[in-house]
Simulated scan of single mutants.
Amino acid sequence: MNEILPWFRRRRVLRAAAAWMAGGGFAAALAQQRGNVVELRGDVLLNGQRLRPEQFIQTGDAVRTGPDAHVVFVIGNAAFQLRQNTAVKIERGDTLHTVSLLDVATGAVAAVWGPGHARQIVTPTLSATVRGTGTYVEVRPQEKLRSYFCNCYGAIELATGRERTLSKAEYHQSFWAEPAPVNGRLLTPARAMAHTDEEMEFLAQLVGEPTAWQVAGRRGNRDGSGAIGPGR
């Protein structure tokens, strides 16, 4: 019965998250020289070697997940969930534990970024500058590396080719970053898809940052517009 639940609702994940938060989060893990992996399932490689649950993922590292694998980890005030068949490189910022750039070569990544300096997410077809926000990105090799990007909440600067836009969202504003123009555009609107509010809330909890809809006490309709719904 447990195996049909979403990953973020499985008992082992909830126990791991509770232990992470009770243990003081990232700062305590760093001070106590514990790992920053909250949840690990399946074959995950860290710099080409099998990742162990007690290890520490840091900036400068490359992480790759295999089929039916995923990993959840926290670096500084940012939490990440890499789904199966995903490959990322985590670039270093001002310090070893400050992410400056997340390079997503393929696969899918959900992330919550706490407030602070500007950071970047890049894919083969998109560049996004983020601060305090939640994001979900997919790179689809079967569609010529077409990228899907969702600004789950916050303000994000998006760029692809010569196109630029500022996305401001309270509730899931979504885009396709096309490998070739569609009706003359490389950045086209999309519906919110492939990730849930509960996933983002789970990641936000790991860094002590509520989502915009949790603060507002209401949600939108997931049409990709970024608008939150009216109060009840």
Rank of each mutant, 00 (worst) to 15 (best):
Ala79Cys: 10
Ile90Thr: 04
Ala128Ser: 11
Pro210Glu: 02
Arg140Gln: 15
Arg218Ser: 07
Leu186Lys: 06
Val44Asn: 06
Thr160Tyr: 12
Arg232Cys: 12
Arg11Gln: 11
Ser127Phe: 02
Pro141Ala: 05
Ala78Trp: 13
Pro179Asn: 01
Asp103Ile: 07
Glu201Gln: 09
Leu5Tyr: 13
Gln32Val: 04
Leu145Phe: 06
Gly25Asp: 04
Gly184Met: 12
Pro179Cys: 02
Ala110Gly: 13
Gln49His: 15
Arg185Asn: 04
Gly231Asn: 14
Ala155His: 01
Trp20Ile: 06
Pro53Trp: 07
Gly161Ile: 01
Arg219Leu: 02
Phe26Asp: 09
Arg185Ser: 03
Ala27Tyr: 02
Arg11Asp: 13
Val72Asp: 01
Ala28Ile: 11
Glu209Asn: 08
Tyr148Gln: 06
Gly208Gln: 03
Asn47Trp: 07
Asp197Tyr: 11
Glu54Asp: 15
Leu186Trp: 08
Gly229Pro: 03
Tyr148Val: 05
Arg222Met: 07
Val182His: 14
Arg9Phe: 08
Pro179Asp: 02
Val37Ala: 02
Asn77Ile: 00
Gly66Arg: 06
Leu46Val: 03
Glu201Ser: 09
Arg146Ser: 15
Ile228Val: 08
Val44Ile: 09
Asn151Tyr: 08
Trp213Ile: 09
Val63Arg: 03
Ala27Trp: 03
Gln49Asn: 14
Leu126Lys: 01
Ala22Pro: 14
Ala118Gly: 10
Tyr153Gly: 04
Arg9Lys: 13
Pro210Gln: 01
Ala155Leu: 05
Leu51Asp: 04
Phe8Thr: 10
Arg185Trp: 04
Gly229Ser: 02
Phe202Tyr: 15
Leu101Lys: 14
Ala204Ser: 12
Ala180Pro: 00
Trp213Arg: 09
Ser147Thr: 10
Thr188Tyr: 01
Gln81Gly: 14
Leu145Cys: 06
Lys168Phe: 11
Phe26Met: 10
Pro181Arg: 15
Leu51Pro: 00
Arg34Leu: 09
Lys144Met: 12
Ile57Gln: 01
Ala29Phe: 12
Gly161Cys: 01
Glu209Ala: 07
Gly132His: 07
Gln81Ser: 14
Phe26Val: 06
Thr135Trp: 05
Gly154Ala: 13
Arg9Leu: 12
Phe149Thr: 05
Ala159Gly: 13
Trp176Glu: 11
Arg131Leu: 07
Glu178His: 00
Ala192Asn: 12
Glu54Tyr: 13
Val99Ala: 00
Gly184His: 13
Asp223Glu: 13
Leu45Met: 11
Gly23Thr: 10
Gly25Val: 03
Met21Leu: 15
Pro6Arg: 05
Phe175Tyr: 15
Arg41Phe: 12
Leu187Asn: 09
Phe56Asp: 07
His172Trp: 06
Gly220Val: 03
Pro115Ser: 10
Val71Ile: 10
Arg191Met: 13
Leu82Met: 01
Ile4Tyr: 14
His172Phe: 08
Asp197Ile: 09
Pro179Glu: 03
Val44Glu: 07
Glu138Tyr: 10
Ile90Trp: 05
Ile75Trp: 03
Lys89Ser: 15
Tyr136Leu: 01
Ala27Leu: 08
Gln205Val: 00
Pro67Trp: 06
Arg64Pro: 00
Leu5Gln: 06
Leu40Phe: 03
Asn77Cys: 09
Gly114Phe: 00
Tyr171Phe: 11
Arg50Phe: 13
Val63Gly: 03
Arg119Val: 01
Asn183Ser: 12
Ala108Asn: 12
Ile121Tyr: 00
Arg64Ser: 14
Gly114Asp: 05
Arg219Cys: 07
Thr98Gly: 08
Glu201Leu: 04
Ala111Pro: 00
Gly25Ser: 09
Asn183Phe: 12
Glu170Gln: 07
Asn77Met: 02
